[in-house]
Design a protein around this nucleic acid. Sequence first.
RNA 1: GGGCGUAUAGUGUAGUCUGGAUAUCACCUCGGCCUUCUAAGCCGAUAACCGGGGUUCGAAUCCCCGUACGCCCGCCA
Length: 570
Amino acid sequence: MDILRKIIEPSLESALADIGVSDDFWKKALGVSREKSQGDLSLPCFPFAKQLGQNPAEIAEQLASSLSGEFDVAAVGGYLNFKAKSEWLARNVMSIDSAPGNTEVLIEHTSANPNGPFHVGRARNAILGDTLVRLNRLYGNEVRAEYYVDDMGKQVGVLAWALSNLSKQQVDDILDDADSINPRWAGKKDHETVRWYQAAQSLRSNEGADDIEEAIGKLVHASEHGDDAVLAQFEQAYKPVLDGMLETLSRLGIEFDTFTKESEFVVNGSVSSLMERLEGLEIHGVADNGAHFLDLGQRGLKGKTDFFYRRGDGSSLYATRDIAYHMWKWQQCDNLINVLGEDHKLQAKQVGMTLTELGEKVPNVMFYAFIKLPEGKMSTRKGNVVFMDDLLEEAKAQAASVVRELRSDLTDDEIDLIAEAVGVSAVRFNIVKVSPEKGFTFRWEEALSFEGESAPFVMYSHTRACSIASKVGRDANFESTGEIPDAMHELLRVMANYVDKLQQSITENKPHIFALYMLELATAYNSFYRDCHVIKDGAVDEFNYAISEKARELLRNGMTGAGIIPLESM
RNA sequence: GGGCGUAUAGUGUAGUCUGGAUAUCACCUCGGCCUUCUAAGCCGAUAACCGGGGUUCGAAUCCCCGUACGCCCGCCA
């Protein structure tokens, strides 16, 4: 609660100076109270005890009696508890205006290899990344969401080879219908094309596939040297798959502003000029067969210290292109954020250290742990996989059955609209609400939960506020405050934290902080809804309505930021 | 073997960077609330800091030693 902190600190500072405390180490000790009955902010007075030679309880008493302002202050067991005065809080909350941001942010996320349908394992990146995009926009930052397309190398090479060498019949024979396509997705290109990829992978794992391996190797080699024809062939192969994936992402509400192809940096020469620069670095080294590396051990890297950026044949590696890509990205923004799986930690460290060595800035990276299934790691090959398309269908179906049960007054079209919004929001929220570095096990039951800590919980509070607004049928006018019961004070308190939480969430790149905050906001609104009626005996309580409307505004904006669709009715 | 990360009620989680009061929230279980703005809601009860040392007036939080699990250690992407 920064607004309260701002008025407490100055008066506390002078009160402390009066009793002989001069440094300001206490400023970070002044924190949010643990228990709301204790107030809004609390200051433990134990640290002053030694310095002043008095016991903490006495010090707290003394301070309490000398402080006054738009807050109540009480000394309890060595703590000084501050509570904002309700009217003051209400006036401040009514004038909350978020969006002080003015930074140009480039956020790269998802960037999944375009070789098959989007599955839940890949979803954590996309959902976290997109939430970061939304939160930054909500804060007022200028954001560009970027997808880095891996359009060269082995994976695409295999796909391209398969598409130009295998017929549909051959593919069906090879896969032996083991993972036959779900009829629901027949015609969706990512689901169809992945079968060619799978068939090729199956052939490659057989004995005596040397000729295939050689053919693919040739393609990959050509792509890495920037061969236009091969790159065009690759693009033709992956484009339909990528389009299918983007269709899925779009259903999740995830869109990108720009797509940048990895091959660009080979073709335009920036990779080769980068390699020349790297060769001039102090920590540069050359292996027996002519491969080049940097000895990052000299810069403090532990574990594997040699970072290879150039093969013996002179071609670049993935990480090398990534460095060129980063240098290019830094030319276009003030802040650079990447969303990466934890398997990329070493790689990102190497890229970062190399950028530092070149005098460039290091990007902010949000790492996340993988999503696995209760049966173990997700694997398309083993069929141990949940496709996002299937999850979204299931979520929608579940939501539809709930709506149908609760709302007999709605038409099928209305139910369909609500179910889609609830399904998508629930799936996203289930993932954003936990901190990224935590291991995540996907469970259908949790993904499809519409109660408690879920998107529909927040959506529901918002529709209640909407329902009130539509009953009143006009805008609120806030002129004077009225009675402020506990439930309203609590709502005001939570609302007052809106900007703080949003800011914290984006500066620390932790979407879950804001997601959990939205649950708090909805919870507080629900209690307010119970205790502070807007419409009483047909008359509108103007003050309560004003608070309800402000809460509705924050709910709606916050939901958009958290990736929850703000319905007006559900 | 080395590097990095994670460990909190029966389950899932917040808090850990920046040490403070009876450790957050939800699910489950048990009990209560629909003649007033949508009960996908509200109110109440039960229940947890991986183990061992240390620092401190005070440790879930900081330091050391373990244990378990995950990721990484390609001239792959």
